[in-house]
Nucleic acid binder design. Sequence first.
DNA 1: AATGAATGAGGATTCATTCAT
DNA 2: GATGAATGAATCCTCATTCAT
Lengths: 188, 188, 188, 188
Amino acid sequence: MPKIGMEPIRRDALVKATIAEVGIHGSLNVSVSQIAKRAGMSSALAHHYFGGKDQIFLAAMRYLLREFRQEVLRAYRTTPDRAEAIIRASFAKTHFDPGTVAAWMAFYVQAQTNPAARRLLSLYQRRLRSNLTHSLRGQVADPAEVADVLAALIDGIYIRRALAAPDTDAAAQVLSLLQVLRAATPQT
Amino acid sequence: MPKIGMEPIRRDALVKATIAEVGIHGSLNVSVSQIAKRAGMSSALAHHYFGGKDQIFLAAMRYLLREFRQEVLRAYRTTPDRAEAIIRASFAKTHFDPGTVAAWMAFYVQAQTNPAARRLLSLYQRRLRSNLTHSLRGQVADPAEVADVLAALIDGIYIRRALAAPDTDAAAQVLSLLQVLRAATPQT
Amino acid sequence: MPKIGMEPIRRDALVKATIAEVGIHGSLNVSVSQIAKRAGMSSALAHHYFGGKDQIFLAAMRYLLREFRQEVLRAYRTTPDRAEAIIRASFAKTHFDPGTVAAWMAFYVQAQTNPAARRLLSLYQRRLRSNLTHSLRGQVADPAEVADVLAALIDGIYIRRALAAPDTDAAAQVLSLLQVLRAATPQT
Amino acid sequence: MPKIGMEPIRRDALVKATIAEVGIHGSLNVSVSQIAKRAGMSSALAHHYFGGKDQIFLAAMRYLLREFRQEVLRAYRTTPDRAEAIIRASFAKTHFDPGTVAAWMAFYVQAQTNPAARRLLSLYQRRLRSNLTHSLRGQVADPAEVADVLAALIDGIYIRRALAAPDTDAAAQVLSLLQVLRAATPQT
DNA sequence: AATGAATGAGGATTCATTCAT
DNA sequence: GATGAATGAATCCTCATTCAT
């Protein structure tokens, strides 16, 4: 009995299985078969839906970035200060799931040679920068510059927290810097 | 060609070939044969000297960290401000060689699952933090905290510069933040 | 050529090819590729179906032991004396095929270190002993003890006949001993 | 300082190292390097003395057979009954050292294809048979035939004891059969 | 839509053996 | 006599991908 409308369900299952499997192995050294098995289908079907391994992983990354966007939107609703909302969303617990961490590290690796991955990373970075810049308007002298620093700091702290012992509150660290910067370079 | 005492020569050649090859491929998906060929020897000899692929890559990473240490020492000699010296050394041109960048990204991936890699990364991070802390003593209220922020910022900016267009001066960005932090939280 | 239900066919082909190839080489120093080629498939498929070389060989041994069991059952039908049937089956011509001999010798080697092989050998020995014991009941004073001797003698003569010139009738030798033992230690 | 007369010492060390290493691995899957390292020399030297791996192993087998011969001679001195002496020597404790067991099993494998090994095995078997025949002269009707049975039984029981749990006294089992045979077929 | 079947290509690793010193 | 250096060849195993059904 041919099922109709299975495609989105299958794709979603594969994306989630990819993240889980990447998390378990800590890298992209995961076979399509492993992913497909976890997603409850044959590897041939995975190929059928995505065309190849690279595209499966790319879809997984797009999914993670989409999740992140929604995390930010949620934070907007509970945190009046937009910059703070972005920072808090950047360090949401889900980002530290093994799968997410491993996917991000692998993504950095891929971005060096895979044009599609590089574009995606670029897009994420531009968006983050733009969001931060907007959120800082009217608060600091040079919003774009401060946004740059904050964005880089977010990435830097994320890597350190993700790979080393997460002993301190990552968001707090960025927020305290934000405070300093706001005080130091107020908009005149 | 001398037939004795080849070991250090071979090891060195392999380490350099590894970095080059990793740079070309953008990841650790490089065969030992490729590395060995570039280093001018058989893959069997590479295994003989290092025991396995992981150890070859680990040796390459140790080499890069050793290089970085020397970069810092050199900077100490030309830059009176120690914090600035560390920051400048962190963004030395050699760090942006494709091989070095790829090795670092791969290193982050490995650190998730390979204990030896994780230890090495930890060591590097502790050293950087300690050096920065010392260099900030007497200049800011809480040197350790500021060192933490600077270290993370260095990593964050490095990744962004390494993977995206290096349009701005990375060191300058960190240095300007350093200035702000010094002014904002002076030692009383 | 049917495209489904190939597994049992492939497995069988591999098992037989293994025995043949082991016979040709006289040991387990046979590559999976050689076996697979003889079985008309790629080595990858052989791995797919069996998981690894050890398991291919183990399957081959299980096949030989199964064959031996059937040999015994056949002998039961034509030889009224059960002990004699077992002995005759033990020296059936097929047991002296080069592949079978080589597999047995390799099996002895494997049994020293491979737990699965050891278990299988143990199972075979217990079965042979148990069958012989049953067959001797009511004929000799201590069936178990005589069974032990006969079983060992069967193995010992097999090795000698398999590795040296098979000039004498192996079964006859054991049978004559059996006769002696029956006469010497009758059940009272 | 060139050492003189090292050859026999080196060869002996290699032979003993071979047996030990074969015992550890349970098969001939032992590299010459491993053997040489255990014997305290380079693998190149091992090749120099023996010419190749096969010859090293053959030398080890010759050593074991020599040892066995001496075991028999020792037994002759303490056991008046020569047949019993041979049987006891055949099950001396040293024969059950892992190295000796593994070497024997490997020897059986080799005898199938290696002519030198086959000759050596043949020689051992003929000697054992001849010794047994002599020892039975004047005691049983057909010494050669009984010798054959005993020899095979010795091998068969050895394999069973070597590979399975050595719960019973192997020599006793053969000796009791010997007694039966002597009683059953006395020389008239 | 879905899959079992199938493989070519590749990769890490091992090793017996040779050779210059 | 002795060894470090060196390698070609081989081996097990994995995997992305294709295809007939």
